[in-house]
């Protein structure tokens, strides 16, 4: 029982207390200096849900995290399957591919920003030569594309590592048995490998969605700062910009609460649902 104490203590002080505070504050409107606050009940929530920008932010988050998850997991699975086919050399590729795992989202953002910068970016320059005028500062779609690519890029190695580990953990006898039975590669992949990978895939799915929801803040803050207009303002970014830049604490707290509920529900549903369907 005592063993739990450190974790419980840290969790309560730095997690549950702030979460409770968020719920409490979400019921008030306070002035920017925090001098006085007024109880408004669910007013902040009503206001938020009626807010066009807030609803747009929902859609943005869905598109952004969907795309990021699919792109990074897709590329990673493709590379992992390729690397797993090699008898020799998969270790070399693995070493070469895990580097970006160590690169912070914010740094990844800076790297991609540098390539696509309007004034000095090399990709922008070559695109210009081909007659394409890249400007993610003004163009919504381009801004979204850039943050998705930058976020996925850093994530590929993480997913690759897990997929490759998962692939290599599959007993080779099973696959060879299928090969003897005449199953071609694609059939083997679909009927044996992919189902056996499902615990890994499930794990990665959850982790990647959470990543896209939260940890990409650095990418977005460095590349677009949520712009142009609000085109790349995901929910977490909005909590930050309303709370710290806009100093609208009530609204920011209400947004935190909504996020808490969404993510909590998502997690529980996912675990309950998928735990039954994944092959172990």
């Amino acid at each position: 029982m005592l063993l739990l104490l450190p974790q419980v203590l840290v969790t309560v002080v730095f997690f549950f207390y702030p979460a409770g505070q968020a719920i409490w504050q979400s019921l008030f409107i306070s002035d920017p200096f925090g001098l006085k606050s007024q109880f408004v009940g669910l007013g902040n929530f009503e206001y938020l849900l009626a807010d066009r920008f807030y609803r747009a932010s929902f859609a943005t988050t869905a598109i952004f995290s969907g795309l990021t998850t699919v792109v990074s997991m897709g590329v990673a699975l493709y590379l992992a399957v390729l690397a797993d086919r090699l008898i020799k050399g998969s270790g070399v590729y693995r070493t070469l591919l895990i580097w970006p795992y160590a690169v912070a989202p914010a740094v990844a953002g800076v790297l991609w920003l540098f390539m696509f910068n309007g004034r000095v970016g090399i990709v922008t320059w070559y695109l210009g030569l081909m007659g394409y005028d890249w400007n993610h500062v003004l163009n919504d779609g381009e801004a979204m594309g850039l943050v998705v690519v930058a976020s996925s890029w850093g994530r590929i190695s993480y997913n690759f590592l897990f997929f490759l580990a998962g692939l290599q953990a599959i007993p080779k006898s099973v696959i060879e048995a299928a090969a003897i039975d005449g199953a071609q590669f694609w059939t083997r992949f679909r009927t044996i490998i992919f189902p056996l990978l499902s615990p890994v895939t499930f794990f990665l799915l959850v982790v990647n969605i959470v990543y896209a929801f939260f940890e990409t803040f650095g990418v977005i803050h460095t590349i677009t700062s949520g712009g142009p207009q609000q085109a790349t303002t995901i929910l977490v970014y909005k909590v930050f910009s309303d709370g710290f830049v806009g100093q609208d604490l009530g609204s920011s707290a209400a947004q935190s609460v909504i996020l808490l509920v969404i993510v909590g529900a998502l997690t529980i549903v996912q675990f309950k649902f998928i735990e039954r369907r994944v092959h172990y």
């Binding site: 803040f217 977490v236 909590v239 930050f240 709370g243 909590g264 997690t267």
Partner: peptide
Amino acid sequence: NFPGRRFFFWMIFLTLMLPVEVRIVPTFQV
């Protein structure tokens, strides 16, 4: 095996999916 084991597990587990980004303003105040 102690009373509330499941409760503590879920309490800790709940934090799994809720990174610091979600609760920035109140945590900042703490």
